[in-house]
Design a protein around this nucleic acid. Structure first.
Lengths: 229, 229
DNA sequence: TCAAAAGTGTTCAAGCTACACCCATGA
DNA sequence: TCATGGGTGTAGCTTGAACACTTTTGA
């Protein structure tokens, strides 16, 4: 038994891949060397295969461009307006990924025509991809305000000023150093590695790493309206 | 030009429809009188039509069961594991809707075999629908903790104790009356109608209504980690 | 020794928690 | 007049916001 045929629709997966270079929040886009819209910029994407789950498809597409596996990735939203793809109706299940920008396979990305763009300096994109990017950014801003996802964009060992730069890049405004530090340390998620950031040419900042156990346990913890017990 | 055929997949839309009867949070399920899984319980759903946007499809499906239009509804998540539907691979774009349980078309719901179940007393559901319901509930708990969505489940005029009952039903534990009232009133979202709840057989509670302008303006306002300017 | 970034403490205001008594209503 | 649920105020504590000076480092 099968369902009636008329409802079968093209299913795409698109990925908003974010990275942080220490100063700006960036997104990885590709210049298409294939049709449709050859020569124009788009998110990395592809069609869902018949034999793969949604997350597997998203990880595959991310891997094809970055060489990375086991990356932080979340389903963002499904876009499906009837005319969003002029070739044929295509519903796109969109994900966003947070990667350590220094760890991905630069050669691979280059071979796929992948380039990093700073948010706010993004070229025109095909289809509704600008809408998707806007939604992804707003989701990251939302989620990072409540949950410790920022660490996914940093190296394993990082300083508190690095983390603060990241937050400032995500939200686009400056934060108070003393309050930021107190807030972050009060979560208890950071472990002092005893090492210092040797790259600095001024005072070297202490490097921390995530307390993985606490991170996983506390990840979803959080409440606000709720604390009115 | 069209895309290659192999990626066309069945696309369903499923709706978690929530209501509140004054005491319990409830969900509207249907006893299927059609195949597959005839005689078993499921969410209300249907296939996406070639000529409708996703939201339109969701509103159509909601309308078919409740007779309602212009209901609060959000895209929840897209479920697409390859074996989630034994008939044929089907990706389901899921929505949740919050309705005023007293306003829907009871006859229509009945004619579609729709019945309300209290959360926690839900029968076994087909496919992965139990997962979907769990995700929807968790999303409502999450969102209601941060944004004023609870009002969507109440009549236009409602008392603060009614609202408190709703919150207690959503989270499953009791709240302090005085603190709850102060918190809710401090949002400035409520307007005193001057009327009282005539249904009560004890002291009649004052009825409020939403300040629509403020509601729309403040809906997305909210921050937590963020308030560390 | 200077410039640049890291690190540290305190004070004030606002908001949250906990908690007990009186009021209105209908039976 | 009693039982039920609605309505109110305060004190203590926690948390967030604002803010300035000292330390480390390499040029």
């Amino acid at each position: 038994m099968l369902y009636p045929a008329e409802s079968r629709i093209m299913l795409a997966i698109d990925c908003c891949i974010f990275g942080f270079d220490g100063e700006n929040l960036k997104i990885l886009l590709i210049k298409r060397n294939f049709n449709p819209e050859k020569g124009n910029w788009s998110l990395m994407g592809g069609f869902l295969r018949a034999d793969e789950d949604l997350n597997a498809g998203a990880q595959r597409i991310l891997h094809e461009l970055t060489g990375l596996n086991n990356v932080y990735m979340e389903q963002l939203y499904t876009f499906g307006n009837i005319d969003r793809d002029p070739v044929e109706r295509t519903v796109s299940i969109c994900f966003f990924a947070l990667i350590n920008i220094h760890e991905h396979d630069h050669e691979l990305a280059k071979s796929q025509n992948g380039y990093w763009f700073t948010l706010g300096k993004i070229p025109p994109l095909i289809f509704d991809h600008e809408t998707i990017v806007a939604k992804a950014l707003s989701q990251i801003q939302y989620k990072a305000a409540l949950h410790p996802i920022g660490f996914e964009l940093l190296p394993e060992r990082f300083s508190i000023p690095q983390l603060q730069n990241l937050y400032e890049a995500i939200y686009g405004f400056a934060l108070d150093r003393r309050n930021f530090r107190r807030k972050i340390l009060s979560t208890g998620l950071l472990l002092d590695t005893g090492e210092k950031n040797e790259n600095s040419s001024t005072k070297k900042a202490v490097l921390y790493k995530l307390d993985q156990a606490k991170y996983e346990k506390q990840f979803n913890a959080f409440h606000y309206f709720m604390s009115m017990k």
